[in-house]
């Protein structure tokens, strides 16, 4: 309960971040969607034992995060909240894969551990990339960009309406839940029967609301198609950003930068 409430707090927080005005915010949303997709694909296409080769991608993220003025602590906290999931699915790797892959003096590290950390790293990179996209663009703009990129309009409308009414319905849900909690004293759990009444009640209200919204739409000439007027213009700067961004990402993907640096350094030292 508390967790979800705070999650919705996050929703408005991300919205607030998205209303800032930085060079990243000013980019065309389509450019940002494509760049994020390229980033994610580059990251997941690394082989299962990659760690150091992926690190420059973190560097890219930090750079964008800084330019977009998205607080790193916020992203880090978000990652921490969802990380148990990644740990849960990754932890089997060290148990199953005992293949020694790396030697640091006396310590031999198995492939399982390396791929486990690789999963954690992938997870952090992909999750932060998406968070950054939303925090620098805003959900509505991302949806509109996706329409311009070929997503069916009706699905975009669905996403936008869902997002619009999350706030209303979660409020309603919280009220119903509080009303119950206030009268149930120490009993914290919700029996299946009470639950179905609460949720059923919420569902009935929701259905009524859908009917009223439909009426409101009809009153303003709704004919089955939702029209949204939004003009995006891709500037030369946008294209320049995208081209550079993709070049950098591809270069980082194909050249293991840290390895070269490390080699250079170790050779210098020895």
């Amino acid at each position: 309960m508390a967790k979800i409430e705070s999650a919705f707090f996050d929703l408005s927080y991300l919205d607030a971040l998205a209303r800032r005005n930085t060079c990243i915010h000013r980019l065309d949303p389509r450019i940002k969607v494509i760049a994020t997709a390229v980033f994610v694909i580059c990251v997941v296409s690394f082989h299962k034992y990659a760690i150091s080769a992926m690190l420059p991608f973190a560097l890219v993220l930090v750079l964008v995060m800084g330019l977009a003025e998205v607080p790193a602590s916020y992203v880090a906290r978000k990652l921490l909240i969802v990380s148990p999931f990644a740990v849960m699915v990754g932890i089997f790797n060290p148990l199953l894969d005992h293949q020694p892959l790396m030697q640091l003096g006396p310590i031999v590290i198995s492939g399982g551990w390396i791929s486990f950390f690789s999963i954690l790293l992938r997870f952090s990179l992909t999750v932060s990339a998406v968070l950054l996209l939303i925090a620098s663009t805003g959900f509505n703009a991302v949806c509109m960009a996706m329409v311009k990129l070929g997503m069916p309009r009706i699905f975009a409308v669905q996403l936008l309406m869902l997002y619009r009414y999350i706030f209303v319905l979660v409020d309603e849900g919280i009220r119903i839940h509080q009303a119950r909690a206030l009268r149930s004293f120490q009993k914290r759990g919700l029996s299946m029967k009470t639950f179905s009444h609460l949720v059923g009640q919420l569902l009935l209200r929701t259905l009524d609301r859908a009917q009223r919204i439909h009426l409101a739409m009809l009153c303003r000439g709704f004919d089955g198609t939702i029209r949204i007027q939004r003009v995006f213009t891709i500037t030369k700067g946008d294209l320049f950003f995208l081209a550079n961004c993709c070049t950098v990402l591809f270069l980082l993907r194909y050249f293991d930068l840290p390895l070269y640096i490390g080699r250079l350094l170790t050779r210098l030292l020895s």
């Binding site: 669905q158 929701t206 859908a210 439909h214 709704f222």
Partner: peptide
């Protein structure tokens, strides 16, 4: 859905999606 002509579905889908979120924050035993 677009061809279905039942335009009531459009707000209904949106609000029911939001309902799923609201319902998911209520836990039961």
């Amino acid at each position: 859905v677009q061809r279905d002509l039942d335009d009531r579905k459009i707000p209904l889908m949106g609000v029911l999606g939001a309902f799923i979120f609201a319902a998911q924050m209520i836990n039961f035993t």
